[in-house]
Design a protein around this nucleic acid. Structure first.
Lengths: 242, 242
DNA sequence: CAGTTCATATAGCAATGTTATAGGTGATAG
DNA sequence: CTATCACCTATAACATTGCTATATGAACTG
């Protein structure tokens, strides 16, 4: 069993590493396994990739292409938040489909040096969230929202991967997903600080509506109506009724 | 520099491993470093702990004691949700204070086999959440809430550890924390179902405010004002602006 | 004292990531 | 056609890793 087609050794190394990584059932993958499967010797690996980590980075980059492709395919739905949902789900499914690759990509955390892939995924999310922000659907800076959502997304995926496949319950994912989206979206009240938590739902809703009205240009009310509406809204919002 | 006090070798191994793990700045810690610092030879390690992983598990168990101690100290505040917040913060701070130990505890994810520590932490959270549920403050099953919160908590902590210490922004933590707590608590509005998400946030907020206003008897508006307010709200709510 | 069990040490194995050195191959220049 | 040169690959080995087969000492038990 060797991968010696007519492909150049560099490609064969990449494929061998990817294949071994995908089927290694959690065990570590050695450079010797890779080079043997690729039909190459050790120095070839180090000539092309410098490191074992360099090779893995390359595999990850290819995996990320796939990941991004999945993310971008259905991107322009016109509903940014819905796109965020699909990006989340795609992220989780990618992790469950290729756990080993995912762990190399997102699970290899070391202090003070985060995987380049994290920054890329974050940027991808931020890009989409910026559209949501432009549509007045965002409550916080797109960057902060992206960081927060990605953190939760990675955490959930890691937890799901760690579970026995039989017990995996995707509701953990959807529940956390909705929690995060809800938190960053203008569907909710403005502040998420502890002080706000005691407020009545009336106030919360008023704050949300206030923010939403100012962000979006609703044409359902005349400007004078809107002004009076906002004033009342403000009165309700600032009421101390807990 | 050796740790040979009068302590038994088992203890010395534990301390040596803990110390090396704490100061290893991300680099791997070898059994030889540990045994040398402990002033012991290799077989002693394997006699007492079976494995390198066994030794690490023991270190983790000790670390977990510390972690749990931090969690339990301020437990009975009478406000379960507030306790959850502190557990979250304690979790993050523990991770940032001892990143290496934390990574061994929570970062060592392998498919289909989750660290025992995760189950313990989950149980701890669930215990506290059950109190919240008993107080009618919970929206979902305590177990599901615990799993979701822990996943996000771990994700956030890993992300923060991966960042350069200078850039670490704890707002990522508080933001995600509040998002999760809000999601599982009964403080939130009724529907977070996907059907609602497609709608304009203005509409959603208006619906929420409408329902809230009709349920509670706000005294911030006169009855005539309220009537007009509700009419406008209705106009906004039924608009098809997506 | 004899015997058994626990605890530690000596020495070494197999596997790992990595590299110093050298051989081969193809293109280009004379 | 030969020579040069850059690129790519192989041979062989190195140091380090986790781990263990075997043996020695100590401490309790009969």
């Amino acid at each position: 069993m060797s991968l010696d087609g007519q492909l150049p050794p560099k490609m064969r190394l990449l494929r061998a590493a990817a294949e071994l990584l995908a089927n290694s059932a959690g065990a570590a993958v050695s450079t010797r396994q890779i080079t043997q499967l690729a039909g190459v010797t050790a120095p070839t690996l180090y000539h092309h990739f410098g490191d074992k980590e360099g090779l893995f980075d390359a595999v990850v980059a290819a995996g990320f292409e796939e990941y991004v492709a999945g993310e971008r395919d259905f991107a322009p739905s016109g509903q940014p938040l819905e796109d965020i949902r699909r990006m989340w789900d795609n992220h989780v499914l990618f992790g469950l489909k290729q756990p080993e690759l995912y762990l190399v990509m997102f699970g290899n955390i070391r202090p003070e040096s985060r995987p380049a892939i994290v920054a890329d995924a974050e940027a991808l999310l931020e890009e989409m969230l910026t559209k949501a922000a432009a549509a007045g659907q965002l409550n916080v800076q797109p960057r902060e929202a992206a960081r927060s959502i990605l953190a939760a997304n990675v955490g959930v995926t890691l937890m799901l991967i760690a579970e026995p496949a039989a017990e995996r319950n995707l509701e953990l994912s959807t529940m956390t997903r909705e929690a995060m989206i809800f938190a960053v979206s203008t569907e909710q009240a403005a502040g998420t600080s502890p002080e706000d938590s005691g407020r009545s739902s009336v106030v919360v809703a008023a704050i949300a509506l206030n923010a939403a009205l100012q962000a979006s240009h609703s044409d359902q009310l005349s400007s004078s109506e809107l002004k009076l509406f906002l004033e009342w809204l403000h009165r309700i919002s600032t009421s101390t009724s807990s």
